[in-house]
Amino acid sequence: MNVKMEKQSEQKQTTHQLTMVQAVSDAMKTMLEIDDTTLLLGEDIGKNGGVFRATEGLQELFGEDRVVDTPLSEAGIVGTAVGLAVNGFKPVVEMQFMGFVYPAYDQIMTHVSRLRMKTMGRFSVPMVIRTPYGAGIRAPEIHSDSAETIFTHMPGIKVVCPATPYDAKGLLIAAIEDPDPVIFMEPMRSYRAQREEVPTGKYTVEIGKGEKIQEGTDVTIIAWGAMVPVAMQAAKQAEERGMSCEVLDLKTLYPLDRDLIAESVQKTGRAVIVHEAHGTGGLGNDILSVINDTSFLYLRAPIERVTGFDVPVPFFALEEHYLPSPKRILQSIEKVVHF
């Protein structure tokens, strides 16, 4: 937190204590104030303020034309946002849950991600698709998916996933200002889990850069979003057993911060990758490739992945068994340290 406080004092900004969902809201409010072309589109985002209240009060402030309650129509929302984006607006679209983004897959895959390439830059799509993701809040079926690799596998789109209120606001503003499309994943179990000093007004956190959030020497734990606090818990337990963990919060899932990963793994020689999406085809495999490409000869143990199992995200009675836990992460830490 000290680093962040320094950043703030440099910018001489006042701060306020915000939860992540408030920080997300604050980012949108900031950009709606600064830039007339910013529009919010989504289901129930107006009067209701969004199902998680991320847009609470914004329609009252900016009007129904800029904070738009749309029909229940994900492909329609993303498709019309393409038209708005190529014609001078910056739509920030809310998909109510990541498991509800699938009807819009065609629009994102066949147009949002590739319009720029196929028109050689003539048309671009400066759009943000915000979507709460992940399990752990006892939500109904399909409300708990973590579908980042659908989008990291899609060339032409960036994928961002903050773990803290400060990063949520700074990354969302960076995403709105990005000239290209950004998928913005919000860990819903972290929405109200902590408060943090967040600067008022505009600031950005760079897309494509992760952060070393704990210094360590024996093993690098790599996580993002809702898995960051879980990884930190495991790191603390490992510490108590005499194993020193370095923890990385990736923040951006495409493009990956390869330098950060390489630097850390070259120092510790060991890595445990944690994500809540299924292991097969999961982003952990790409991170493994980064380590293979950059740090193979530094490794002192095979890399471990702690991920959701290769099963659909279950009904919530079993979600704690589906999700990576500190216990599972600790098991992997021990395995690599004592290899």
């Binding site: 019309t80 946002a81 038209g83 014609n87 629009q107 147009h111 196929k118 003539r122």
Partner: peptide, 29 residues
């Protein structure tokens, strides 16, 4: 796919019907 400067001609849509929401969005703008 690149139209003449100043001409608002989208590239031909290959996925069927996907251009309809685009036209609605551009008109909305």
């Amino acid at each position: 796919c690149v139209p003449p400067e100043g001409k608002n001609i989208f590239p031909a849509a290959v996925p069927i019907a996907t251009q309809i929401p685009h036209a609605v969005g551009a008109a909305w703008a």
